[in-house]
């Protein structure tokens, strides 16, 4: 279980993680928001479809790729949260089809 050692958080923002509203300290990383919310699966492996999560949290391993505000392939460990940010686990495998809605 991840937990924060911060004693006082002067400012928080609300983001959405897989549809759930989460209140997190301002300017922390997207990965930290995921870790504290307990929703630690970042992406599906493209071939096996297995769950993956952050591994190095320093931008090296690219395991923490998530979709942020509709943009896929974002490294959760390098991005900071912003008010109203919509974070979704990335689910692009070899078999994903593009969404034709809205065309």
């Amino acid at each position: 279980m991840f937990r924060s050692l911060r004693e006082n958080v002067p400012e928080t923002v609300q983001v959405s993680v897989n549809g759930h509203p989460v209140q997190v300290p301002a300017r922390q990383t997207v990965w930290s928001a995921l870790a504290l919310s307990g929703q630690t699966v970042t992406r599906k492996s493209a071939l096996s479809g297995e769950d993956r999560s952050a591994y190095c949290t320093m931008g090296v391993c690219f395991e923490c790729l998530v979709e942020i505000d509709g943009e896929p392939n974002q490294q959760a460990c390098l991005r900071e949260v912003a008010p109203g940010m919509v974070i979704v686990s990335q689910n692009i495998t070899e078999f994903t089809m593009a969404d034709r809605d809205g065309l």
């Binding site: 493209a46 392939n73 692009i92 495998t93 070899e94 994903t96 089809m97 593009a98 969404d99």
Partner: peptide
């Protein structure tokens, strides 16, 4: 000559 290419990460089939 050196014709250039670039390839994307996987994306949904379109």
């Amino acid at each position: 000559a050196a014709p250039m290419l670039m390839i994307t990460a996987r994306m949904p089939h379109f």
